[in-house]
C-alpha cells in the first residue's frame, strides 16, 4: 500500500536498473562488503582511503600493529518516527571491520587520519628502519 503511494509521488527512473541487479535493495546490505577501501603506496608511505559518508569521526577506530592496519566503525540506519516508512532503502548500515597487510612496517607515531566530506584518508609513514637506504660509494 505504501509502495503504491510512493510510486505515485516519486518514481525513480532507474527502477528498472535495480531490477537488473536483483541483489540491490532486496537483501539487507552485507557488512562484509562495506565500505570499500583504496590503498596507495610509495617508497615513503602508504595512503589508505575509504568512502564513509554520514559517519562521525568518533565512530571510526584505526589501529596499526607492524604492517597491519585495522579500521573499524559503524553506521546507523536512518531512524523512523511513527507513521513513517522506507519505500526505498539501499544505503548500507551496520558495523565494519577491515584489515590490510601493508608492504612495510608503519611508523605508528607518524600516522595521520582525516575525515572530510565523507571520505576518510589515512596517511601511514613507513618506519624509518624500513626505508630503502642509499649507500654511498666512497672513492679510495
Amino acid at each position: 500500500m505504501l509502495m503504491t503511494n510512493f510510486t505515485r509521488l516519486l518514481d525513480p527512473w532507474d527502477e528498472c536498473e535495480s531490477m537488473r541487479q536483483p541483489f540491490f535493495g532486496q537483501t539487507e546490505p552485507s557488512n562484509a562488503e562495506f565500505p570499500a577501501f583504496n590503498v596507495w603506496v610509495s617508497g615513503d608511505d602508504a595512503i589508505v582511503t575509504s568512502e564513509l559518508p554520514g559517519i562521525d569521526r568518533g565512530a571510526i577506530e584505526i589501529s596499526v600493529v607492524g604492517k597491519t592496519l585495522t579500521v573499524r566503525g559503524s553506521r546507523r540506519s536512518e531512524e523512523l518516527a511513527e507513521g513513517e516508512s522506507f519505500p526505498h532503502k539501499e544505503r548500507w548500515f551496520g558495523q565494519f571491520n577491515k584489515t590490510f597487510e601493508l608492504p612495510f612496517d608503519i611508523d605508528a607515531d607518524g600516522i595521520r587520519a582525516q575525515l572530510a566530506g565523507g571520505i576518510l584518508e589515512i596517511s601511514l609513514p613507513r618506519a624509518e628502519a624500513e626505508k630503502p637506504r642509499k649507500i654511498e660509494i666512497k672513492s679510495e
Binding site: F6, L9, L52, P53, E84, P87, E90, R91, G118, I119
Partner: peptide, 20 residues
C-alpha cells in the same frame, strides 16, 4: 545509494555522495 523516507508531510531522499 539512496534511502527514501515517507513522512506525513514530506518525502525525504537521503543519498550517499562522498566527496561532494
Amino acid at each position: 545509494a539512496v534511502d527514501i523516507i515517507e513522512k506525513k508531510g514530506e518525502i525525504v531522499v537521503v543519498a550517499d555522495m562522498p566527496g561532494v
